[in-house]
Design a protein around this nucleic acid. Structure first.
Length: 483
RNA sequence: GGCGACGUAGCCAAGUGGUAAGGCAGGGCUCUGCAAAAGCCUUAUUCGUCGGUUCGAUUCCGACCGUCGCCUCCA
C-alpha cells in the first residue's frame, strides 16, 4: 500500500515519502482573522484536517502548523469596516484580532477540525521576520526604497515555478497600477512603511512599518518545520501570488527547497461561483451550524474531491445531512444490538475478512490522493452490508458487532470525522431518565396491546417533540434521543 | 490579454482504453395498527459538441461551445 499525492509543484501524482521516515511536517496557510469565517474556509480546513487525520491513521507522527494572520492585511484604508469600527469603538486592532481568532477556533472545533500542533501568529514573529528581511537584503534578493523593502523576482530565475507563470506574462497582464519605486512590476513587499495613522506598526531598520503579505508564512513554517519540510497546504486560490512568493523568499533565504509536496484545496462555490466575502455570497460557519450538523457539513465537503470545487446549495447540504444520517442509523443499530448480543452468536462479516476488505478498499481510496468521495462510497457499501446482516440475523455475536463498530469508528470516525460523538447519547441517559422512559414505554406498550392507538401515538408524538424518537420493532420498542 | 481547471443521470459526485461507484430525490414491494427506521428491486445504451487515433474512448489527441478560477486582499 502506497500513499500517492498530487503535487502541484510537479502537477503529477507522486508517491508520498516524507523527508524523515515516520514523521510529517505540514504547514497550512491559515486565515486572516478580521471577520467570522464562512463555509469556504470550512472546506479548506476540513479537507486539510482529513489529510492530517489520514496521515496519523497511517502511523505518521505529524507536526501540523497553521498560522493565524493578524497583521499585514489590516490596512486602515477607510474601506475596512472592522477597523473603522474598531477605531470608533476605541478597540485595539488586537482586540478585533482576538475576537475573530477565537471565533475561528470555535468554528473549527465545532466542525471537529483537529487543532494544529502550532498556531503561530505573525505578530509574534516580528523579530524573526525582520531578521529574514535583513538576510535577504544582504544576499541581494531584496532592496529598500524609502522605508519599503521589496523582493526582487528577477533575482530568482525560477520564480513562478509553482503556479506556472513567467515574469514576462505577468508584466504583460498587470492590471494593478505599478508602483514606480518597484524595479519590476512583479516585485512584492517584504516590509511596508507605516504611515503615522496606521494602526499596527513596529520599529525596524527601515523605519516604522509592518511585514508584507507573504513573509510570515515562509518564516514561521521553516522556523517550526525546518527547510525543506514535507507538505505545504492551503487554498488553491493562493497559489499565486502568495504561495509563489513564499517559495521565492524561502529558497532565496536558505539554499534548499522550501516544501516537498504542495497540496492545495479547490474552492467552495455557490452556483458555480466562488464563495467569498467580497461577492457577498457567503454563509458563515456559525450560520451553517445552526442549520446543519457538523457531520453533515463535513460529509458535504468530503463528498467532492479536495482538489476540485464543491458547489454549495441547500439541496446539497440537505442531501448530505440525510446521507450522514443513514450512516449514523446503522451505527446506532449496531450499538443497540450490542446491548443484547449473545457472547457467541453468529459471527458475520466475519469474518473479519469482510471487514478487512472494507478497510482495504477504504485505504485504497484514500491512498489515491485522499479520494474521500470514493472512501465514502466504500463506507456506504459497508452500511448496506451491515444493515442486511442486522435484519437477517438475530443472533450476531458480540465480537462481530464490536468489530463492525470499531471499523466504523476508525474509518468514518477517526479518519473522516463524520460520526457523532457518543457522549451525546449518554449525556441524557441518567438512571432517572432511563427509569422514566421505562415507565413511559411500558404505558405505551400497554396502550398498543389494548389497541388504543390514539394514546400510543400521542405518547410517540409528545416524545418526538422532545427529540426522542421511537422505533417499534417486532422484538419490542426502543428509543433514541437526538437532541 | 496570460496561466489554469472543469463540463458524467432530476440534484450532488467518483471513475476507467473494453463497455458507467456512492449519496440525495423518485418509483415498486416487504415489514408495521399507522408511522419512522430497515430490507429487496428499480432509475444514464450513456459520460458538453464535432472530428481524429484505436479492434474498441466517457477515458488519449485536436477543434469548438459552455462554465469557472487565478493574474488585486481572499481558504
Amino acid at each position: 500500500m502506497t500513499l500517492k499525492v498530487y503535487n502541484y509543484l510537479s502537477r503529477e501524482m507522486e508517491v508520498f515519502e516524507p523527508i524523515q521516515p515516520g514523521r510529517v511536517g505540514m504547514y497550512v496557510c491559515g486565515p486572516t482573522v478580521y471577520d467570522h469565517s464562512h463555509l469556504g474556509h470550512a472546506k479548506t480546513y476540513v479537507a486539510m484536517d482529513v489529510i492530517v487525520r489520514y496521515l496519523k491513521h497511517l502511523g505518521y507522527q505529524v507536526r501540523h502548523v497553521r498560522n493565524i494572520t493578524d497583521v499585514g492585511h489590516l490596512l486602515d484604508s477607510g474601506e475596512d469596516r472592522i477597523l473603522r469600527g474598531a477605531r470608533r469603538h476605541r478597540l485595539e486592532p488586537m482586540e478585533v484580532v482576538e475576537t475573530y481568532m477565537n471565533s475561528f477556533f470555535e468554528d473549527m472545533d465545532a466542525l471537529k477540525v483537529q487543532r494544529p500542533n502550532i498556531s503561530p501568529r505573525a505578530t509574534g514573529h516580528i523579530p524573526e521576520i525582520i531578521q529574514w528581511i535583513r538576510d535577504l537584503l544582504d544576499a541581494g534578493y531584496a532592496y529598500e526604497v524609502a522605508g519599503n523593502v521589496y523582493f526582487s523576482v528577477e533575482a530568482m530565475p525560477d520564480y513562478g515555478k509553482l503556479s506556472r507563470r513567467n515574469v514576462e506574462d505577468l508584466e504583460a497582464g498587470v492590471r494593478v497600477q505599478v508602483r514606480d519605486e518597484k524595479r519590476h512590476p512583479a516585485d512584492f513587499s517584504l516590509w511596508k512603511r507605516a504611515e503615522p495613522e496606521h494602526l499596527m506598526q513596529w520599529p525596524s531598520p527601515w523605519g516604522a512599518g509592518y511585514p508584507g503579505w507573504h513573509i510570515e508564512c515562509s518564516v514561521m513554517s521553516t522556523k517550526y518545520l525546518g527547510q525543506p519540510f514535507d507538505i505545504h497546504g492551503g487554498g488553491l486560490e493562493n497559489i499565486f501570488p502568495h504561495n509563489e512568493c513564499e517559495i521565492a523568499q524561502a529558497e532565496a533565504h536558505h539554499d534548499a527547497d522550501f516544501a516537498k509536496y504542495w497540496v492545495l484545496v479547490g474552492s467552495l462555490t455557490v452556483n458555480g461561483i466562488k464563495m467569498s466575502k467580497s461577492l457577498g455570497n457567503f454563509l458563515t460557519i456559525k450560520d451553517a451550524l445552526a442549520l446543519y450538523t457538523p457531520e453533515a457539513i463535513r460529509f458535504f465537503i468530503l463528498s467532492g474531491h479536495y482538489r476540485g470545487p464543491v458547489d454549495f446549495s441547500r439541496e446539497a447540504l440537505e442531501a448530505a445531512q440525510r446521507g450522514v444520517q443513514r450512516l449514523h442509523n446503522t451505527l446506532r443499530a449496531v450499538r443497540d444490538r450490542m446491548g443484547t448480543a449473545p457472547p457467541a452468536g453468529t459471527a458475520i462479516l466475519s469474518d473479519v475478512s469482510a471487514l478487512t476488505d472494507y478497510r482495504k478498499a477504504f485505504q485504497e481510496a484514500m491512498e489515491e490522493d485522499f479520494n474521500t468521495p470514493q472512501a465514502l462510497a466504500v463506507l456506504f457499501e459497508m452500511v448496506k452490508d451491515v444493515n442486511q446482516q442486522l435484519t437477517q440475523k438475530g443472533d450476531l455475536s458480540m465480537g462481530s458487532l464490536a468489530a463492525i463498530e470499531k471499523t466504523f469508528g476508525d474509518l468514518a470516525g477517526s479518519v473522516l470525522g463524520i460520526l457523532p460523538a457518543e457522549e451525546k447519547a449518554s449525556a441524557v441517559s441518567s438512571e432517572l431518565v432511563e427509569g422514566l422512559m421505562d415507565i413511559i414505554m411500558d404505558l405505551r406498550r400497554e396502550a398498543r396491546e389494548a389497541k388504543e392507538w390514539e394514546r400510543a401515538d400521542m405518547l410517540r408524538n409528545r416524545l418526538a417533540l422532545l427529540g426522542i424518537m421511537l422505533n417499534d420493532a417486532p422484538a419490542g420498542s426502543s428509543w433514541t434521543y437526538e437532541g
